[in-house]
Nucleic acid binder design. Structure first.
Lengths: 313, 313
DNA sequence: CGTAGGCCTGCTCATATGAGCAGATCCGTA
DNA sequence: TACGGATCTGCTCATATGAGCAGGCCTACG
């Protein structure tokens, strides 16, 4: 486009958007026909001279969402923009809460994992987001936790706000020996919870990073050395307590045998599996989850979405 | 507006502006009527959820321009946005050049002052911006200048690009004694130039700040002490070589008697007097010029425009 | 309990806008 | 110079949109 034409588009755009003139008036003002004004305006939009943005804490990035859905075959994606100074985790948690509340049909049984992210989602749910939902934990995590009750409170909060019931999984996440794990699984109470978890109409989960900051280390289930060893074997993070590689496979089958909770295949075959993830540190595990089909719905921040969509990986 | 409604406006705005859906489609998608969608969209725009900006080096701020015209009774105002890292002076000079080129009727005689700003305007004019314009200097400034020829070259450049003729004022800006000034004025050549200057169909000028950096000091017409004394007496800057107070009056009539060039009243009564000014340092002198009716057209940057529009001054 | 006033909703209708088309104009090539 | 293709221009017509209006609903107050 000639410099001259470009300047004219700028004038048209100014009169149209800042002065609220009609294209007809603009034409009269600038001595051009209204069609030409319209075309210049279209050019201005195309060339990015006119920049339109939605500024709101709960805005979304529909373009990225569409790209993610197409690229990874998701049923739904929710991407929130994060401005400097915003807390990405909190924004994403809010979006996940919104999505959960808008989910139709309303899940009668909701299977959830636990962790900081899920706790945050629970906090952002509004009272009465649903009614009568049974919220069941899909992986263990009680008692060894430094902050006891976090896992339980997440489930309780979600259930409470939906005027429903929380069903906790009374077991550690990782047992020392496979036999112990099997023994606990065989326990009637635990088995009942697991059975309920398997029937859930929707799952809501996040993921952890494989490094020393992992909750498994903090909780005493694994040592920092254990995690370092997992990383050496290719682990990128954990999903409902199970460590996976970049391609989504279990890193260490022996460890997995000692891990109590819903299996990853249950997630893969679930109708609705909502994966909530935020932050730079979780880009790798997020990639592993979406590429290996562990979720049908992804809720994340803009930066993570963009990282997932980058080519050549 | 309730939180709920606000969120809905955000969704509508996203679908409308980012997904290019019609209000009808949006209504269907969100389960509302198209009228409601339209109203929510209007609310989103009103509340500033939708932000539309024109991003272009030659964009203008029409809102500020209107405010300036109304506030100071100007015929026209041109305000350019200046982003971080932009050179305000250069942007404003470009805008002034654009305005001059678009001026109708095309001035047959254009009276100009000189200085860095005007030189910059001359540089931004495009070849053939007019044809056959006689460009006449309205204040003296030759020969004592450290960079001889600047004043002359400004006029020459403007005239050359308009396929016209430059008429220089062969005299210093400020003389040592009033008699000398009168003698020079009486000179046939000088008188002819002054007479032509008085007939100009348009004037284009800038202004200087009253401090030690003034071109008058650099050129040797005044000493730093002289300027300090002028400031003590209330000077805020100079217009075509004449120092004025905040209210637009001449600071020192005796000095003014020694200053050769068009008088300020000629500017005040001119049909078209274009004042070009940019930069934080010139806010005070700019205020003095516009409030005392020295110009009919103001060309400036956004920050200066905003400073001029601030209340209580 | 009744009612006036304010707000919201869904409509009609006039207007603004974009898609698509035919003629005009420009430019390079034979 | 003549020709063919590409681009530009001004139009028609269908559609999208906003203004304005009447009726419904909610609330506060007598």
């Amino acid at each position: 486009m000639s410099d001259d034409t470009e300047l004219l588009s700028v004038r048209v755009a100014e009169l149209y958007y800042e002065e609220n003139k009609t294209q007809d008036e603009i034409g009269a003002l600038l001595g051009i026909t209204r069609w030409k004004a319209g075309r210049l305006l279209a050019q201005a939009r195309e060339k990015g001279i006119v920049r339109i943005q939605i500024v709101h804490p709960r805005a979304r990035r529909l373009g990225l969402e569409r790209a993610l859905r197409e690229r990874f075959g998701l049923v739904e994606a929710v991407v929130v923009p994060v401005a400097d100074g915003d807390d990405a985790q909190s924004r994403v948690a809010q979006a996940a809460a919104d999505h959960l509340a808008a989910l139709r049909p309303v899940p009668r049984i909701l299977g959830i994992s636990w962790g900081r992210t899920l706790q945050d989602v629970a906090g952002h749910l509004s009272d009465g987001w649903a009614s009568g939902v049974r919220v069941v934990q899909i992986n263990g995590g009680v008692s060894l936790n430094r902050r006891p009750g976090t896992a339980a409170s997440t489930a309780a909060t979600i259930a409470h706000k939906a005027a429903g019931e929380a069903i906790l999984l009374p077991s550690p996440a990782i047992l020392e020996r496979p036999e112990t794990k099997r023994a606990i699984e065989a326990d009637r109470t635990v088995a009942a919870v697991m059975s309920l978890a398997a029937q859930a109409s929707a799952y809501l989960f996040s993921a952890g990073v494989a490094d020393a900051s992992s909750v498994h280390v903090g909780s005493g289930y694994l040592t920092a050395d254990d995690v370092a060893e997992l990383v050496r074997k290719g682990a990128v993070g954990d999903v409902v307590g199970r460590y996976i590689e970049a391609d989504g496979n279990i890193v260490d089958p022996a460890l997995d045998e000692r891990t109590l909770g819903l299996g990853l295949n249950a997630l893969r075959s679930a109708r609705t599996a909502i994966f909530v993830v935020a932050g730079q540190a979780k880009h790798d595990i997020a990639r592993a989850v979406v590429t290996s089909g562990l979720c049908t719905v992804l809720v994340t921040d803009e930066a993570t979405a963009q990282a997932l969509l980058e080519e050549n990986r």
